[in-house]
């Protein structure tokens, strides 16, 4: 599996006075099994970018290749592409429409033309994958809590058994615990299935714990594309464009400045704790 964006540019309202460049010459290669965080603030072009991945938007210039084939070739099967590159939009609960949870999840596989049995098997498996208990299956999706609705919506895409799962702000509006639950669940899912996962977010702190590659978007261009720790090294540049590295990066930088010999590339609280304790011990500090 590979997904390639080759010099992709995109304009909104092309040819009018409101013309606005959303993507500018974006090149990107996404390989099988990667866990990617796509970061940028509102208007950075990240949502426009993900809509190119499954052909919802067509580049004004440049090409998108999925497994070597140009997805905008006239004979390319877009419907199949959309089942392979599953895209879950922000506030996915806004797209639930069936009378019960199970039927709603069946919508995707049914559109793929699968028979009833296969459809239901897939829907069941998908709901299990997102960790929704059986008791909710025949409830109206509108009666669920925010976190549960979001699981159902993700299951609705998973049931198509995509090779790539793209989630646009999957945690927006959830409380901290709800946020952690969804992200943990996605990480687990990715471990189990080896699926490629792209998390779109405006929070470095949220994704830093999970992903192994971060793509930072700014003004329609890719600003950084690297391992999280490499990206966070540029915390000053990130700040300049209105993004921030995780707080932990700032703590480690500040400690280093104060003369404590710690690794400033650390991205999690656990690592930080270990590093500080070790450094203090070396300094002969009181432990």
């Amino acid at each position: 599996m590979s997904l390639i964006l080759d010099h992709v540019s995109y304009l909104y309202e092309a040819g009018t006075a409101m013309e606005y460049t959303a993507l500018r010459d974006v090149c990107l290669k996404i390989s099988k099994g990667e866990f990617i965080g796509l970061i940028g603030h509102t208007g950075s072009g990240k949502s426009t970018l993900v809509q190119h991945l499954n052909g919802l938007l067509k580049p004004v210039s440049g090409n998108v290749y999925f497994n070597g084939a140009d997805i905008h070739d006239s004979d390319y099967n877009k419907k199949e592409l959309r089942s392979k590159v599953g895209l879950v939009f922000q506030y996915p609960e806004h797209q639930l429409f069936e009378a019960d949870v199970f039927s709603d999840v069946c919508f995707g596989p049914k559109n793929l033309g699968l028979d009833k049995k296969e459809t239901e098997l897939r829907a069941y498996a998908a709901l299990k994958q997102v960790g929704l208990e059986d008791e909710y299956f025949y409830q109206s999706p509108f009666d669920l809590s925010g976190g549960q609705k979001r699981r159902v919506a993700i299951a609705g895409v998973l049931a198509m058994q995509p090779e790539v799962l793209v989630l646009d702000e999957p945690t927006a509006g959830l409380d901290p615990k709800g946020r952690d639950e969804i992200l943990d669940r996605i990480a687990k899912l990715r471990d189990e299935t080896g699926m490629t996962v792209i998390l779109v977010s405006h929070s470095m702190e949220d994704v830093a714990r999970y992903v192994d590659r971060i793509i930072v978007m700014n003004k329609g261009q890719i600003m950084f594309d690297d391992k999280p720790r490499e990206v966070f090294r540029h915390y000053r540049e990130l700040e300049a464009v209105g993004l921030a590295a995780p707080q932990i990066t700032y703590i480690m930088q500040a400690l280093k400045k104060k003369g404590l010999d710690v690794d400033t590339d650390i991205t999690s609280v656990e690592e930080a704790k270990e590093a500080i304790l070790k450094a203090l011990k070396r300094n002969g500090g009181a432990v």
Binding site: D175, K177, Q247, I251, V269, I276, L277, A286, V287
Partner: peptide
């Protein structure tokens, strides 16, 4: 209570648990 704390607060808390004052 399904809430969290800023990373710096959490780090300080963890360090305290490890015996730092």
């Amino acid at each position: 209570l399904r809430l969290d704390v800023p990373q710096v607060t959490l780090l300080a808390h963890e360090l305290k648990k490890s015996g730092l004052s």
